[in-house]
Simulated scan of single mutants.
Amino acid sequence: MIYLFTCLYLCSCKNRNYITYYNKVNEIDSIYRMKNDTLIAIKKFKRVFRNFEPRNDERMEEYENYIKFSDKYNKNFGGKKSLYKLIPLVAPYWKFKREDTDFFKLYKKYGIDSITVERKVVEWKNSLNKQLIDSFKIAFIRDQAKDSITGQQSLKNFRKNAALLKWTLTNYGYPSMQKIGLETDDGVFMPMLIYLNHMAQIEDYEYFKTKLLNYVKSGDLPPRDYVEMVERHVQVNHLKPVYGVKSTDEEIIKDSVNINYNRKLIGLQSLKVRRKITKEFLKNNSKKK
């Protein structure tokens, strides 16, 4: 019976629209970031994570913050089980995260030593799809290659990479960081945001615009990466801004209502809130250096 309920829960989580998740997380983020009401935020976070498998936005760090806040106020967040669940979410950034001494202190408090954390990161790394990593490593190197005559990146290479992405979507689904990581063992940086940016410049753009939206909804593709592709297409073709990611301040002021409406439809915060988050993120990172 327990097994049946577990299966039903996992299936229901998979079928949920993560745009709803992102919008709920955005609202909660504002509760503690803007209103400083951490206890209410903890309650709301807990409700969200009961219904959705957590994500951990690079700048909002919603699941990690939920755990930290809960620990600070002696609220139950799930203990070791939740801490172990967090590790794969931060593992793509492990080169930087492992320098966070407070992170290890939190784990130690709940009986998980640094050796165990490191082992879990290795297990995560070993779980990645080696075939896809090798394929996308080549694709990212090709993506950055410049034409010997024009000195520009090659549309021909972008088209080759589009073919790889199509094949991957058909055979493996979206190549998220939980499938290919963020950086190879030999240092090839593989941010899909940049990869998708270049899909906006070729004939397959409309296909990807439609197809990839499904992966935003499934929680495999962060809204920010999808929006980057759409806005790059807008920029290249001199169209009206949709999400305002690459817009000038003047363009945003003219159409801020529509831009913020579109951003919510895809699961992004308003431009004003996102700028505040980015400012705090950069400030905190500069302190760590």
Rank of each mutant, 00 (worst) to 15 (best):
C7N: 09
S12R: 10
S12H: 02
N15K: 10
T20W: 01
Y21D: 09
V25Y: 01
E27G: 04
N36I: 10
D37P: 09
L39I: 14
E53G: 03
R55Q: 07
R59D: 08
Y63W: 06
F69T: 10
S70H: 12
K75P: 02
G78Q: 11
G78E: 12
S82I: 07
Y84R: 10
L89C: 08
K95P: 02
F96L: 13
K97P: 01
E99N: 14
K108I: 00
Y110H: 12
D113P: 01
V122K: 15
N126Q: 15
L128Q: 05
Q131I: 08
F136N: 07
R142P: 03
D143P: 05
A145P: 00
D147F: 08
D147Q: 02
I149Y: 02
Q152H: 10
N157G: 11
N157I: 09
T170Q: 15
G173H: 13
I180C: 03
L182R: 14
I202C: 04
I202M: 10
D204S: 14
E206P: 00
K211H: 01
P222H: 14
P223D: 05
E231Q: 11
Q235H: 12
Q235L: 15
V236T: 13
N237H: 15
L239K: 15
P241M: 10
G244Q: 04
E250M: 11
I266H: 05
I277T: 11
F281N: 04
S286E: 15
